[in-house]
Design a protein around this nucleic acid. Structure first.
Length: 442
DNA sequence: TCTGGGGTCCTAGGACCC
DNA sequence: TCTGGGGTCCTAGGACCC
């Protein structure tokens, strides 16, 4: 039997973070909602209503505080506990619709629909959207096409055309070309600002132009990635759905501080907390790291003296143990620290990551290691049950003067018993903590 | 006062080796 | 008159993604 042509779906949650907040604040239905980045800095999510007000992605909130206030926009600090949990719920549902699901990001997934006995892809898409919104309250869009790149574009197009109700199926060449002609080259997945400029210079303006560009030319100017993108636009699939993502090759935790940090002790408290988080991520994917980078920086937007520095070491022994990583982090940090600067951010990166299995073979007889392993496992267990950071190393401190600003944080409705949504019969549903309007940002 | 965080892959060029 | 050349590994930096 001839194998059926590949068919991919891309499901994308609409304004994901803003939608999560709306699920638990039904009073905000129909009104503009934005979610801010860490430290309540920039706009990182906007509901459709907020987008209509002309609020752009990534702008610092303080720059548009007037608009936020006059238009009565609901503002939320980012709440990853909530979004991460909601994401898992959405992904679990999507799993029911395909044997092969790739969780591409917190709010997107590719579904391999190849070879499924489907008579009507459009109906299937509708069923997926309806199920997700019914079970989670999160609205989603879906694009279905012969390659991932086309599926992503179809999804984009569906969002722009209300009459499509968030569902777009591109299977025949004619339909595909018609829509590609109406989309700019820069909207194509994999074409960023640099390449958009380059393409424009050569008169390649629409996604359709890009599809028909000379292969040799694209290879020469945009490398293999550019070539693959063009092939994908032509319906030749270059990227399969990967439902078994490989472990991360580098892991980083870094944060801007809620207020400038001046003393070594505060900087150490923050930075060792970051490395503790890195260690946790390492253990979660059952890896150990062989190299460690620590970096610090002052506020590049401020006028004062600037200092940016980082240092990388090769670890004497590949590890994922918090205590060991903290030890090396402190050694580096002491070398990096200079008195007299106002530090705004620090971070920790581990690289040269290998599987912990590889390591165990060579260290089987090391008693200290065995003890470390037990302590770490116990800490992980307690923190998993009692909450992140309940047990931590003394150096991570309790002062947390550096902790990020989150003045408009919604409750962790779905991941903490203490913060469950309470609804009293006969009463209007409670409004979330953040006060609407721009107070505090002006 | 206030400006995010965490990743991937590819390429060019240098170092090094034989 | 003429300076060797080719393969491989590593690293930094660029471009992209959400």
């Amino acid at each position: 039997m001839k194998p059926s042509p590949p068919i991919f779906a891309l499901v994308d949650c609409n304004s994901f973070y803003a939608s999560c907040e709306k699920v638990f604040a039904p009073g905000l239905e129909g009104s503009p909602v934005v979610v801010l980045s860490n430290n309540d800095g920039c706009i990182i999510a906007r509901s459709a209503e907020a987008r209509e007000l002309g609020i752009r992605m990534g702008v610092p909130a303080f720059e548009i505080s007037d608009l936020l206030e006059t238009k009565d926009v609901a503002i939320f600090s980012t709440n990853y506990a909530l979004y991460g949990d909601m994401s898992q719920r959405v992904m679990t549902i999507l799993q029911k619709f395909t044997p092969t699901l790739e969780v591409y990001s917190i709010d997107e997934a590719f579904l391999d629909l190849s070879g499924m006995p489907l008579f009507d892809l459009h109906e299937y898409g509708r069923l997926i959207c309806q199920t997700v919104v019914k079970w989670t309250g999160i609205p989603v869009s879906i694009g279905i096409a012969p390659t991932k790149t086309l599926a992503k574009l179809a999804n984009d197009a569906a969002k722009d055309l209300p009459e499509k109700e968030g569902i777009m199926v591109w299977t025949d060449e004619e339909t595909i070309d018609r829509y590609l002609g109406s989309l700019s080259a820069g909207q194509v997945w994999g074409i960023g600002p640099q390449h958009t400029r380059l393409l424009e210079k050569h008169g390649i303006l629409t996604a359709c132009d890009l599809k028909h560009v000379n292969e040799k030319w694209i290879r020469q100017h945009m490398g293999v990635m550019g070539e693959r993108t063009v092939l994908e636009l032509r319906g030749i699939s270059c990227y399969p759905v990967d439902d078994n993502p490989s472990p991360k090759k580098g892991i980083c935790t870094s944060r801007s501080f809620g207020r400038p940090v001046e003393t070594y002790d505060d900087l150490e408290e923050a930075t060792t907390s970051f490395v503790a988080s890195v260690a946790e991520k390492l253990r979660k994917q059952k890896s150990v790291a062989q190299s460690l980078t620590v970096f610090v920086m002052t506020n590049r937007f401020a006028r004062g003296p600037q200092y940016v520095n980082g240092m990388t070491i090769t670890l004497p022994l590949a590890t994922h143990h918090t205590a060991e990583l903290i030890h090396h982090t402190r050694i580096i940090l002491k070398k990096l620290f200079r008195k007299g600067y106002l530090y705004k951010k620090s971070g920790v990166i581990v690289n040269d990551i290998i599987s912990q299995k590889t390591l165990q073979c060579t260290l089987w007889d090391d008693r200290n290691r065995e003890k470390q392993e037990k302590i770490t496992a116990a800490i992980d267990q307690i923190n998993a049950r009692m909450g992140k950071g309940k047990v931590r190393y003394a150096v991570q401190g309790t002062g947390r003067k550096w902790k990020m600003r989150q003045e408009r944080l919604s409750p962790r409705y779905t991941t903490d018993w203490e913060e469950l949504l309470v609804i009293e019969l006969g009463k209007a549903p409670p409004q979330p903590l953040p006060i609407r309007g721009g107070a505090g940002l002006g």
